[in-house]
Design a protein around this nucleic acid. Structure first.
Lengths: 142, 142
DNA sequence: GTAGTCCTTGACGCCGACGTCAAGGCAAGC
DNA sequence: GCTTGCCTTGACGTCGGCGTCAAGGACTAC
């Protein structure tokens, strides 16, 4: 199988495969004409990479899985190094999710506060002699 | 106040301020000598930008807040455009957090599965005549 | 006068994971 | 022979938010 077919079967591009090869992640054999040649096992490796990438692993993090498969294991996560990556990733995910939830809470609070302020202004505006109406944006404020 | 002082007071760098200016976000007046000149109001704008950046807003998303302050409002989120950004951000955060939790769950499951498989192999190994021991990685597999 | 500090603009570097174009080789169908 | 399509390498572009020089002007202190 040549590069175009492998790319199509894995739902990626030839550019990506050449990139992986340049990174030493997915080397290819070469035919007499210099064309890259792949087999089903390469497809397996590639799918492992893609799955992890979809999870947000960066390329280097997929390397232990690929090497594990290449070492003959049926699963890319059959080796301790892969499990370490899993665990490290779980830690990173937990930390990131925690940060994002904190940010979400703060932004939500800011929004609520700003809406209260706006409503307070709107209520004041209904009182005769009240202040200016709510900003409607647009740019020009006289 | 010149650029160095403003940067120091906001806990950022002169490079960053010039970058903001190049983006049209924080333009500066110029003194006779060509130096940029800022006042306390600029510091207020800058702090607004930095706060939102810390929340993960990208620069363009801070623009409505800055323009709102520049329009004379006491708060950067006193304008509807800013509230829209808040709401959009909340949606993005919720979506992202949801994705990350899903990924976290999947990775956790993969880890658990892989550990079960490893333990099963280890248990087998204790039985006389059982299969090969667990992969210890390292590279060479004969 | 001169050393030192701050300022100016301009321009390249960085990071990750490729996209995109260019120039040319190889194989197959007509 | 000619076109078409896939392949090759090489190299520059992308995105955001700056970092990091480099060369030179401005101002202060001594």
């Amino acid at each position: 199988m040549r590069i175009g077919e492998l790319a199509a079967r894995a739902g990626t591009t030839t550019r990506t495969l050449r990139y992986y090869e340049s990174r030493g992640l997915l080397p290819a054999r070469r035919g007499d004409n210099g064309y890259r040649t792949y087999d089903e096992h390469d497809l397996r490796l590639l799918r492992q990479i893609r799955t992890l990438q979809d999870f947000g692993f960066d390329l280097e993090e997929t390397r232990p899985f690929v090497e594990c498969l290449r070492a003959g294991h049926a699963e890319g996560d059959a080796c301790p190094a892969s499990l370490d990556v899993y665990r490290r990733k779980l830690g990173e995910l937990d930390a990131l999710i925690g940060e994002l939830r904190s940010v979400r809470a703060q932004v939500g609070e800011q929004l609520a506060r700003a809406e209260r302020a706006r409503d307070a202004l709107a209520a004041d505006a209904e009182v005769p002699g009240g202040p200016e109406p709510v900003c409607e944006l647009g740019g020009e404020t006289p």
